[in-house]
């Protein structure tokens, strides 16, 4: 694991309007098989990807929101959400799905971390690779 690279997937689009969100999620799931250190960031309309209560029955889209809850199984444990993006959209962390992961020692740890723009900038600067969607 020591030479595993740090990958950050940066998500800035709401789901369903474009294919970016679903494509990002699929790439994350495929990439996670390669045992890199994978984190996700949600900025701008990307925060809408994590909204609780997504219901696509009327629109006919495949609802892939529950797939984010499987990320913990793929050892993707850090989902960073920018606070300013939530605030601008009138949202708070309570509007987002609960997403958890297990470690060797503990179960059901929260995966979503709300961070300020300054903290998000720091997270990004610590990555080997940032992939944008």
């Amino acid at each position: 694991m020591s030479d595993a690279k740090k990958f950050l997937y940066l998500n800035r689009k709401a789901p369903y309007g474009t294919i970016y969100a679903l494509e990002s999620l699929e790439v994350v799931l495929i990439g996670a098989a390669f045992e890199q250190q994978v984190s996700l960031a949600f900025v701008d309309d990307g925060v809408y990807q994590l909204m609780a209560g997504q219901n696509t029955k009327g629109s006919g889209f495949k609802n892939f929101s529950n797939t984010y809850k499987a990320l913990g199984d793929y050892d993707v444990r850090n989902l960073y959400v920018e606070k300013e993006s939530l605030d601008e959209r009138g949202l708070s962390v309570d509007d987002l799905m609960p997403i958890t992961h297990d470690t060797d020692d503990e179960e059901d740890l929260p995966s979503i971390m709300v961070v300020s723009r300054a903290e998000m900038a720091k997270v990004m600067s610590e990555q080997d690779v940032v992939l944008s969607f």
Binding site: A33, K62, N66, A70
Partner: peptide
């Protein structure tokens, strides 16, 4: 049914 994906 829970996650909408077939697991790796």
């Amino acid at each position: 049914d829970e996650y909408q994906i077939a697991p790796a």
